[in-house]
């Protein structure tokens, strides 16, 4: 789904996204690298779609104050509980200051932003393939797919079994979860290809969903083309505004024999798998 400018509801005063200060409910390390942040959020920002993201204004901590906002996928949105969840890896200045947020403190968020994944009615057998923090992006998709009564298989990949996150979350939702790890030597492209081919042979696959990695992109593009399976991928790019104004977040896509550029924050972050290009 893409917006054309003319369709954008500019006369509407009921804004499709909001800038809000939320209170931190909890913010805890779930292993050596990843944190789970839970915010108390007002209902107007919890009307989210799987694959959308928020643009977070990182706090100033220890004299460090990251200037730009940081884009973060929605890991979970729960209108009934009034909660918004993010799963993130502390990699640099912004995410490290986020990791220091304590319960009761406030975090300014802008969102929900971007266009999310599509789940077509005719798709019954869905396959998620994700690694690391990519699982965060795909968790709400799993929830929505299962709510719609789809059959969902999730192949979760990580460096080692301890780094496998969200497996319980996917299982609890009723997904069929397969895990592969580098330390067990099961996450190579050939292994994955075998695993996916056997899913296709056993129960059929109507659509692939993935995010992030070049390796997975290439593999799924190849399998998708071979078997005529649709696919979507969530991409990342450096952002400034997050709402479509600055044009810094573009990615190149192959479309109709041409290379086109689209904004990850607006037309994305979810793109057609076959149109996506390696980077």
């Amino acid at each position: 789904m893409t917006y054309t400018r003319a369709e954008f509801p500019i006369e509407s005063h009921s804004a499709p996204f909001h800038e809000v200060d939320c209170q931190v409910k909890s913010n805890e390390a779930i292993n050596d690298e990843y944190y789970l942040l839970i915010l108390n959020a007002p209902p107007e920002i919890l009307d989210c779609k799987p694959g959308q993201f928020f643009h977070l204004l990182c706090p100033s901590k220890d004299g460090r104050s990251p200037y730009l906002r940081r884009p973060m996928s929605i890991y979970g949105y729960f209108p009934d509980k009034g909660e918004l969840h993010f799963l993130y890896k502390a990699v640099g200045e912004g995410t490290r200051t986020m990791a220091q947020l304590e319960a009761g403190e406030r975090l300014n968020v802008l969102g929900p932003l971007g266009s999310g994944f599509t789940i077509r009615d005719e798709w019954q057998n869905l396959l998620i393939v994700a690694r690391g923090v990519g699982l965060a992006t795909l968790a709400p998709l799993a929830q929505e797919a299962l709510r719609k009564g789809k059959n969902l298989t999730a192949i979760c990949s990580a460096r080692s079994p301890e780094m496998l996150m969200s497996v319980e979350r996917f299982r609890a939702l009723g997904a069929n979860v397969l895990t592969v790890t580098d330390s067990e030597g099961t996450s190579g492209v050939d292994d994955l290809e075998g695993l996916i081919e056997s899913r296709i042979a056993q129960s059929g696959v109507d659509v692939f969903y993935t995010c992030g990695s070049n390796r997975l992109l290439k593999l799924l593009q190849r399998l998708g083309a071979k078997h005529g399976i649709a696919g979507e991928i969530a991409l990342e790019q450096q952002m400034a505004c997050g709402i479509g104004m600055c044009q810094c977040c573009v990615r190149s896509l192959r479309r109709g024999g041409e290379i086109v550029y689209e904004r990850v924050c607006k037309e994305g972050p979810v793109f057609d798998l076959q149109e996506a290009m390696e980077w």
């Binding site: 200037y67 790019q237 573009v250 550029y261």
Partner: peptide
């Protein structure tokens, strides 16, 4: 946003980066 007579694609990515308390951009004029 500045426009030019013809279509243009703009500069390669990354097109922005953060510096202490400010930013740099090389969006160009897509």
């Amino acid at each position: 946003k500045t426009i030019t007579p013809e279509k243009r694609i703009g500069n390669p990515t990354p097109r922005v980066c953060e510096v202490q308390g400010s930013m740099l951009n090389s969006i160009g004029i897509p």
